[in-house]
Design a binder for these strands. Structure first.
Lengths: 329, 329
DNA sequence: CTGTTAGCGCCTTCAC
DNA sequence: GTGAAGGCGCTAACAG
């Protein structure tokens, strides 16, 4: 690799001059400028990004940390993040947190390889975030609440979403409503569950723990949870799945047992992923403003970076999307 | 930010000792080890990743460059890349090429911020790749062919896939088969088209240019292309869409015009994206071994990095997935 | 085992 | 407008 030194030598100038010329600092004569640029081209010179970042103690890039880069769920969110990042002249890299403490994500968090981060990955511990955030390195978390002057939160109102979903089911005449839960360590899941309980409560329906089953946010999990309830021959009138993936798994289980949705049983999901519209029957669900979450999150990062005073915590609202998996009355 | 110097000072040792201790180099007594670690904890020390990369001239991370981070298509591919990368103790970052020459992707390519790259983004020009690849920085391209000692190719056999799809349609009794093309600058698309022509040819069916329409690889494009043909009131017996997204758009157009698939017309897609299975009718399509492509691509990067002698070019095969969008005869 | 020291490649005062 | 020199934070000889 050619370095700036080589370029300077070939062009017959000092390194500093070469640096100025290469960075278009208005300090060098057109003639030398040209000489340097030609030398650079000839040597196929490329600057070493690290060296310059090191010197400037600033990377101009922010990281988006996801549990799993390959999930279809994130699509819209990423788009929001990406657009705003680029519009601000920053670079965006995405990295995954698989591998926990050894993951790429943690490395980026701890080793000052980016200027800020957005996290949606509940396998990254609070501790790591707490340790990493600091002045000049703001972190925004999308799936939890952390008290720290340099960590901010952007969240959708999962409590209200859970409430909405449950109330919708109640309004359609259902009283025995199962809640298919995601992982217990998920804050989002917990809030949805609380919304569910509150709606039950508000409508005078006692909460019964037998109607809470676990599905782990995966399709497979939703399938199994549903099968289990079917096997017990004690079905509720409706299912509220804490996310769409599980609902789709549940749909499958129901179909295999010739239980018709929504005639025999109503189901509702959460997230409004793309598939939900295509599944049969199309899934009634709670839509989250994913794009907005992403866009706002980056926005917050930039605000923090420019040391503006601001809220620590933002909450976006959800919306019920009514399709055909809930009985019409 | 505390630096290693501060840690050394606080622990009362030399920087080198601190460095050794922090990196678990088997060279330092348990006592000093402990002292250093405590000092580090107390100062909330975090190493500066750049500085260490700079020194070692090696980053231990590879980049996956995609046209659009938010596309659902890449899911499986990313998984393949990710698993192999991690298994080799490397880090993976994904970045997008939106923005062309100013994109994050190009920056990473040119500025030696990673040790190798995998590219699936046809808006990155061949020139940039040619300029960037070099000894110690191998690049694997997934969507084109480039001659360069340090760029390698992994491709699925799109020619054969196109042939397979077309032949399937022909075997089901269709002779007038439209080809809904993706963007002209897409190499993948071109190969699929050639496969289509070859199959026609092989079965003695003359190719007619009126049956080639453009859909741009988007759902909207497939919808419009299909509408156009419908408006001309001169429909083929079957459609071969160069990807599933377009096929799904086409399905929509057909449905709106009360043209039944597969009774009135047969359609086949390409890619086997997740949605294809759920659409109605489920889409017959060509499956690409996406996971394998990803896994193989990283594998090639590592081989190149370890200077093994190897092929420049790999080709994986495709498979027909028969569902219900083609007439059964 | 521990300390001293020379850079990695680049940017940026500071003199000229 | 240009050049010399210091240093960003870290690693890895090398010497003790």
């Amino acid at each position: 690799m050619a370095t700036i030194k080589d370029v300077a030598k070939l062009a017959g100038v000092a390194v500093s001059t070469a640096s100025y010329a290469l960075n278009n600092v208005n300090k060098v004569s057109p003639a030398t400028m040209k000489k340097v640029q030609e030398a650079a081209r000839e040597l196929n010179y490329m600057k070493n990004g690290f060296a310059s970042d090191l010197k400037r103690t600033k990377t101009n890039t922010i990281a988006l940390i996801l549990k799993d880069l390959s999930g279809p769920f994130y699509s819209e969110l990423i788009k929001g993040v990406q657009e705003v990042t680029i519009r601000n002249g920053y670079d965006l890299i995405a990295c995954s947190s698989v591998g926990g403490a050894q993951s790429t994500a943690v490395k980026f968090l701890k080793e000052k390889r980016v200027d800020g981060a957005i996290i949606l990955a509940h396998n990254i511990s609070d501790d790591i975030i707490l340790e990493s955030a600091r002045e000049g390195f703001p972190i925004v978390v999308l799936d939890r609440k952390i008290e720290h002057p340099f960590v901010f939160g952007v969240e959708v109102d999962n409590f209200h979403g859970g409430y909405l979903a449950t109330e919708h089911l109640i309004e359609k005449g259902h009283r025995e409503i199962a809640f298919v839960s995601g992982p217990i360590d998920s804050h989002d899941n917990a809030m949805r569950f609380e919304g569910y309980q509150e709606a039950l409560n508000h409508h005078g329906i006692p909460y019964q723990s037998k109607w809470k089953v676990f599905g782990d946010f995966t399709r497979e999990g939703g399938y199994r949870a549903t099968k289990m309830l079917i096997a017990q021959r004690d079905l509720p009138q409706a299912f509220f799945y804490a996310n769409d993936e599980m609902a789709i798994g549940g749909l499958q289980a129901l179909k295999e047992n010739k239980i018709s949705v929504p005639n025999d049983i109503s189901i509702i999901g959460y997230d409004d992923i793309q598939l939900s519209e295509y599944v049969s029957p199309p899934l009634t669900t709670i839509r989250q403003p994913k794009y907005e979450v992403g866009a706002l999150a980056v926005h917050v990062v930039f605000q923090a970076l420019s040391k503006e005073k601001m809220e620590q915590y933002y909450k976006l609202s959800t919306e019920l999307i009514s399709r055909n998996s809930v009985k019409h009355t």
